[in-house]
Design a protein around this nucleic acid. Sequence first.
RNA 1: GGGUGGUUAGCUCAGCUGGUAGAGCGUCGCCCUUACAAGGCGAAUGUCGGGGGUUCGAGUCCCUCACCACCCACCA
Length: 924
Amino acid sequence: MEKVYAPHEIERRIYERWERNGWFAPRGTGAPYAIAIPPPNVTGTLHMGHAFQHTLMDTLTRYHRMRGDDTLWQPGTDHAGIATQMVVERQLNAEGKKRTDLSRDEFVARVWQWKEQSGGTISAQMRRLGDSVDWSRDRFTMDAGLSRAVVEVFVRLYEEGLIYRGKRLVNWDPVLLTAVSDLEVEQEEVEGNLWHLRYPLADGSGHVVVATTRPETMLGDTAVAVHPDDERYRHLVGKQIRLPLAEREIPIIADSYVDATFGSGCVKITPAHDFNDYEVGQRHALPMINVFTPRAAMNDEVPPRFRGLDRFEARKRVIAELEAAGLLEKVEKHKHSVPKGDRSGAVLEPYLTDQWYVKIAPLAAPAIAAVEEGRTRFVPENWTNTYFQWMRNIRDWCVSRQLWWGHRIPAWYDDAGNVYVGRDEPDVRAKHGLGAEVALRRDEDVLDTWFSSALWPFSTLGWPDKTPELAKFYPTSVLVTGFDIIFFWVARMMMMGLKFMGDVPFREVYITGLIRDEHGEKMSKSKGNVIDPLDIIDGIDLEALVAKRTSGLMQPQLAPQIEKNTRKQFPEGIPPHGTDALRFTFAALAAPSHDIRFDLQRVAGYRNFCNKLWNAARFVSLSLGDAASIGTGPAERSLADRWIRSRFGRMLEQVENALREYRFDYVAAALYEYTWYEFCDWYLELTKPILQDENASDAAKRGTRQTLAHMLEALQRALHPIMPFITEEIWRFVAPLAGRNGPTVMLEPYPTAQEFAFDAEAEREIEWVRNFILGVRQIRSGMDIAPSKKLPVILQNASPEDVARATQHRAYLDRLAGLETLDILPSGATAPEAATALMGELTILVPLAGLIDAKAEVERLEKLIAKTRDELRKTHTKLANEKFVNNAPKAVVDQERERQAEFQRTLTSLETQLARVRRLLDRT
RNA sequence: GGGUGGUUAGCUCAGCUGGUAGAGCGUCGCCCUUACAAGGCGAAUGUCGGGGGUUCGAGUCCCUCACCACCCACCA
């Protein structure tokens, strides 16, 4: 084996070999296990959040594959309608062109071109992360197959009356010029104004005051509303208002929507530009006057002097004119929220347009029931509430988008405006008996990206065809995703899956936290705190990192600050850590239900772990020589051999349990602790007395070598799902020595706890050995004795069992505790002045003569005594409490008594030692 | 307005059904002991956000307050 662990060198060739051999494809003979990847935006790159989720999905996939399950991790990408279209439009802008300079077909061709060009980035990243997805099944939401599923779903829903077209208010993005769904609206708090406007009564008998945050929309007012029970205004209901500026007459109406306690209690009603007003308008059959163009400038419905003004310009102008006319009563500061598009950041307008909607209630009901009945389980469970809360208040889903990139809506119109929905134009003509003489025009709109995403778990498996994959892998086993898309995606997959497959799309949903930077900030390009997972794997120098973070910013003025922060945080750039270290970090940090502050220190720690593992393998390699030297013939298993097997089994138990509950942090901890603190720190050290002893028998050496090989081999299998690369590399060297001849660790069986039975005796004996060694080490450290110095040791109060153990395990003690001699003090004999360590009744003595600083020992003992007294006092108090003794379970009380006795023994013993050492001190 | 999560060692976080406060990183000693200095051995470190309650016993259960996140819905 290479002397130095070099992840970069290993990782690439290993992945290439896995992929070339087709080992990622489902092959197991066990139960089906499937995960559908949350498809990333095809033209994007994977960020830390993806890397995190992919690590968990790959860990699950590899684990189940090794368990023999018929395992599929389904890969693919999403066309990400708006996001992708925006990127390509920006590219056009950079060339001095606009989207509309191109025909629709030309533009779409251009997007496809960009998709082909950049689509490889994600798959390259996934390969570097070690993702064992079945590349042969790679899918894209705009593939022919998936597009067919989209059309099929649309048509079926339409035919059932679950999709309809309607003219109503939608959230309109005046920059992107498209409708968006409720979910794509982000409310942003702003310090705005509340303008109080005087609206004169038409009969000249006075005025009412209305308050508004949107004065410009007053040009579209078609009523003023008051609360029906509001005594102040009851006499005015039914009268007319002379709407200023517009110079129209509008009625005063009564509607319980009005809150009489807010403002003046009078509300201007603008049905075409406010969701609440729209409802009021419907109830009172008010006219709707749309005063905006699609770009949110004033249209021809307003007096000529306002026409063409942008909405914010118009606002100023309206206020100015009202003020000049004495109609502005007052202006108050007012905190309120404005709706913004999550993509464009533009202030959205409620806008009256024709759109396609999915009637959601009939789809939501089964999706709610499925979770109530536990057919799909959220992990952590508290996300269930979030899901219910949204699903129970869900509103119809606007699915049409006025974009060019996406699945075009399969609807056609004739010249009379009749709409026909079908799988394609011939289908529509056939179904509705439309001859060639009838001109049909296809709907210009495309579907919301999430419409196709909602079908992902079955569309990727071949639906609407009844494929064998679909039968086998649907429902999928688990969905791993972030809470931010529970509504966008998880809920919609539930609805569509239940509707079209008659079953839930996944049995479990594991919701991960968000990856944040080390300060807890969300990682974003504009904050300049993004880290590319590949840069952690391969490392990156400072200049390249700065360049990466400051280029392509939407707001270039942020560049200097970002550069400064980056230089401060990574003065040396980022050193390479390797994929396995990054993956292990993600697993270790994956505690449930909260976000993760990502800390590079942590990755460095796990890189050291990889290094430790590597060196352990080197030790084994050096200890074994070649296969021949392990050889055949009688083999004798040492106590340590039995012990490590037993410990391995206990560790596997923990891993199995933790994995069932998606506690990847526990999985990582169990593996880490076993590997470092048991296998490396103790087992490997315990093999040395045998392997390096010329007097040890061949059988003993053979037994140890075999165990060494077997346990290292099995450990690679246990670690492989989290750390695929280093384990493959080590496994391929050690497997033949352990009698395994498979081509790759990834297809070997995952070790089980049953194979490594609990060995009570071995655990007990090694525990004794370990405590003995620790005791001597404490003395050594307390006395500042060099590890190289061999010590004479005397046992006091040794039971026959202690004597037997000391004799039997003498080789371990000599080597690991560094013993020179080991003597038993006969009972009744006086002990020499010595440093002490206690093991229950047994006292380990290291005579002070010439070796030890008596003063240091006194200090050490005094400290120990103080500590023991403290503990003893606590147990005294507890046991003196009658209520405790009477009420606590017997086991707890007994345990407390035992502790008290133990502390008492320790204390007595320590005090005796102290007195003895003091005497020595006095003599000198 | 409704809801969720959080507040534990200098930092980042675990602590299951109440029963001796843990890990990693960092810190402090001593060691280049032929797998590993990216290491070994040893050590220190906490009024578990505040207050109250239940209990023999509370980091853990209940109430309350404070602060920090986040989600949903919003009265112009």
